[in-house]
Simulated scan of single mutants.
Amino acid sequence: MRVLLASPRGFCAGVNMAIDSLELALKAFGAPIYVYHEIVHNRHVVEHFRSKGVVFLDSLEDAPVGSTLLFSAHGVSPEVRAKAKARQLTAIDATCPLVTKVHLEAIKYAKEGRTIVLIGHQGHDEVIGTMGEAPEAILLVESPEDVDALEVANPEHMAYLTQTTLSVDDTSRIIARLRERFPLIAGPAKSDICYATQNRQEAVAKLSAEADVTLVLGSQNSSNSQRLAELSKERGVAAYLVDGPQDVRPEWLEGAETVLVTAGASAPETVVDAMLDYLKETFGATVEPRLVREESVSFPLPKELRQLASS
């Protein structure tokens, strides 16, 4: 078996920043540290921090008054921030700057009185946070069919935004349909889909053409990881999203001469290493690293932690 190891893969700059923030907060303030929702959508990362005394919660009422709270990489609504302040929580904001960009765009368009169409997945943490910036103004769509069903008061005064972790191809189709129905719709000057999501999708699009099977390391609730598996399947190559080698069924790889291995933006490199070890031991695999695009992006720590990091 030949394994094509995709690069870029795994942690993006936003995930690195959020994880570094939580590690530093633990060191500075000690356990327990409370995190609103999962720090990133990955089971291994969440379990790692739980073992260190981090408490992940879905309701701020579960955080003791005056305790330390970290907002995850996915961002939160103004309502959540207000609740944290009311409970006198020491809040550390580890929202990815690319998600913050979308929030600021939502605020801008809402102030202009536009109806905002948000392209995203219902119930995703990032979508909930973005919609919370202007709940009266935002309509959520997930498909071109949803666009067809839209009814707006002023079709000439609209804007669109997108979740940062979507499929580039799917999003382009939805935006095209929006522009067909609403020719005057405004949009961001630069795509909201993050650089890492696009790069990982580009790698799968190019490399899956050489593969018989694609293995994507990532958790089921990771939107960007799901998109990687879907992208391979759309190109006729079987794909499986797994947390690690323990989830692989040997029959998936029967007769496979070339396997593409990649990882979503919230999956740690340790699970990639474990998968490669499994493929070597079980199938005698040889690994061929394949670089599709260089990445050199990094984001600063939250301002609440920068002084601690330098001391």
Rank of each mutant, 00 (worst) to 15 (best):
K111T: 03
L118N: 05
I174H: 02
G129P: 04
M131C: 09
L150C: 04
A137C: 12
G120R: 05
M158R: 05
A205Y: 13
S167A: 04
V152L: 02
T115W: 02
V147K: 07
G123R: 06
A189W: 13
S223Y: 01
E126Y: 08
G123Q: 06
I175H: 01
A186G: 06
S191P: 09
L178C: 02
G113R: 06
L217Q: 07
T197K: 08
L166R: 03
S172R: 15
V152I: 10
G129C: 08
A110F: 07
Q198Y: 11
C194Y: 03
E136A: 13
V141E: 12
S172L: 14
T130D: 05
N154A: 13
V127M: 12
N199Q: 14
I119D: 00
D125K: 14
S191H: 06
H124K: 09
L139P: 04
R179F: 00
T130Y: 02
D192V: 13
T164I: 11
A186I: 01
S222I: 13
K206L: 15
I107G: 06
Q198W: 10
D212Q: 10
V152N: 03
E126R: 11
L215K: 02
L217E: 03
E180P: 00
L139V: 15
Y160N: 08
A189F: 11
L184F: 10
E202D: 14
K111R: 15
D192K: 10
A153R: 14
D148C: 00
I128V: 15
L184I: 00
R114K: 15
E151S: 14
C194H: 06
L140E: 07
P183S: 01
A106L: 08
S222Q: 07
Q198N: 13
I119A: 05
A211I: 14
I138P: 07
A159H: 08
V204D: 08
T115R: 09
D192N: 15
G123F: 09
H121F: 04
V117E: 02
V204K: 04
S208W: 05
E136T: 11
D125P: 12
N154Y: 10
D170E: 14
A203I: 07
L184M: 12
E133F: 15
R181F: 00
T214L: 13
I138S: 06
D148I: 00
A209W: 07
E151P: 01
E210R: 15
V127Y: 05
V168S: 03
